[in-house]
Simulated scan of single mutants.
Amino acid sequence: MGRKRMEEQWWKGELAADIHQTLRTKELKLPMYKAHSPQIGMRRYFIDLLTVLSNRCNLCPTARHLAIYLLDHFMDRYDITVKQLHIISFACLLLASKFEEKEDKVPKLEHVNNLACMCNVNVVLNKKDLLRMEMLLLENFNWNLCLPTPAHYIDYYLCVSIGENDLHNGWPITSLTKTKDFLEKYAYYFLDFSVQDHTFLHFRPSLIAAACVCAARICMQISPAWTTQLELLTCYSWEHLAQCIEMMFIYYENDIKEASNLKKQVTIQHQEQEAVENLSHQATTQVLFQQSSYHPLAQHSATLSQFQSPVQDLCSAYRDSLQAHRPSGLLAGSADSSLHSYATLQASLRPSAQTLPIQTPIAVQVALGTEPRHCISTACGSSYFSGHHSYTAGCFDG
C-alpha cells in the first residue's frame, strides 16, 4: 500500500526530540477505547473504505490514521445506525485531512462524492449536512484534533531502524540504504495491520509504531531484533513490545493464508474454465476465443512461495522467545488464547451506550454481503440533522 511523505519532515529537524516528547505526553491523555459500539462488526468495512478513499485522494498516512481514530472513538461513544456511518466516515476523513494536510491537498466535496460512487456507495453529500456533521465531531472531541496515532511516530523511529552493527542472516549488511528502504515498507505494512483489528487500540500509539519497526526487522531477519539505540529512542524494551508483536505476526500469518487460499481458488477456477473450453473446442471446428493464461496472483506466486516458509519458521522461533519473555497478563497461554484474552478484556468494558443526537435520518437502503469488507449499496434522501448545531462559515469549495 503506497504512502506519501509530508513535505515537513519534522522527524529530521532539530526539534524532533521535543516534538516526540510532546506527542508522548499527549497520548497519555487519550480516551480509553472500550469496543462497545453495536456496529463494531461493520468496522472493517468502513476502515477499508477510508483507506481506499484516502489513497485515491493521495492523503498522508497520518491523515488516514487520524480519520480512523476519530471514527473508532465516535462509534465507541454512541449507538449509531448504519444509515449514518457513511456520512460520519466521510466527515472524519475530511476533518483529518484539514488538520494534517495543506489546504490545497484537502479533498473537494465533489471529488469525495465521485469516489464514493466508484466504491458503490450511492451517497450524495451536500455541504450543509457535512458541515453539521463536522461540527458534531469537533464538539465531541472538544475541538482537539491533536490526537497522536502510530503513524505520527513511525518515521521518527525509522530514522534509527538500521545500524552499522546490525547483521542480516548473520552477515554484515552491505547496503544500509537499500536495507532501510525495504524495512520501511515492511514497517508500513505492519502499520496498516494495526488498524485492521480494534484490539490494537488497547496499546499506546507509540508502542504500536515501535512494534511495527521491530516486526519488520524480524521479517527481514535483521539481528538483533531490537537494538539499544531503538530502545533509547522509543523508551520501549523488548518486553514492552512482545505482546503487540505477537499479535502482529498472528494477523500476518492469517494474511498469508488468505493470499494462499485466494491463489488456489483462482487456479481452480482457471482450470475449470480451461476444461470447459477444451470440451467446447472438441465440439467445434473453429476456436473463436482463447482463455488467457494470466490470473491476478500469477506474478506474486513465486515470491509468495519463497517468502512464506522462512517467515513462518522465523515467527515460530520468535514466538518461542516471546514465550520466554511473556508477562502473565493478556498473553498467558497460546497465541490463540491471547486473542480470547483481549476479547475478555473488551467484554469487561461495557458502559451504557449513548444515543447520537441526530434527528430525521436520511433514507438509506443497505445491502450487506456475508463479509464486512464488502461494499454497501446505499441511496440517500433528505437531511437527517437537527438544526441546533451552529457554525460560522463553509469549509468547502464548490
Rank of each mutant, 00 (worst) to 15 (best):
S54F: 00
N144V: 02
G163P: 00
Y342M: 09
Y69C: 03
F203M: 05
C380G: 07
T22D: 05
Q243Y: 10
K178F: 10
V195R: 05
Q273D: 13
L233Y: 05
S293Q: 14
D155T: 03
Q39T: 04
E258R: 15
Y189C: 12
E101S: 04
I376L: 15
L167R: 08
S223R: 09
L137Y: 00
D72Q: 01
Q312T: 09
N122Y: 14
M32C: 10
Q243L: 10
H325Q: 12
I173G: 02
G381M: 00
D18T: 08
S383Y: 05
S260L: 08
R373E: 12
S237Y: 08
S301Y: 03
T81H: 07
D79E: 11
I88C: 12
S334Y: 10
R43A: 02
I19S: 09
M32P: 05
K26S: 04
S390M: 12
H111Q: 15
H86F: 00
H198Q: 10
S382V: 09
S305Q: 11
R350D: 03
A347Y: 00
N169H: 14
E27H: 00
D397T: 10
A67H: 02
I47M: 03
T149S: 03
T81R: 10
A216E: 00
K98M: 10
E103M: 10
S161M: 02
E272C: 06
A187G: 06
W171M: 15
A96L: 05
A216G: 06
K83A: 07
A17Y: 08
I154P: 00
L28E: 12
Q299W: 10
M32W: 05
V123E: 15
D76I: 00
A332Y: 06
W238K: 11
E8G: 12
N55P: 01
I250D: 08
T378L: 10
A324F: 13
H73P: 01
T227G: 01
I222E: 05
T355N: 00
K34H: 07
S337L: 14
V106E: 09
H388I: 11
M32K: 09
L138T: 08
V311D: 09
Q221S: 14
C315W: 04
C119Q: 15
L23S: 02
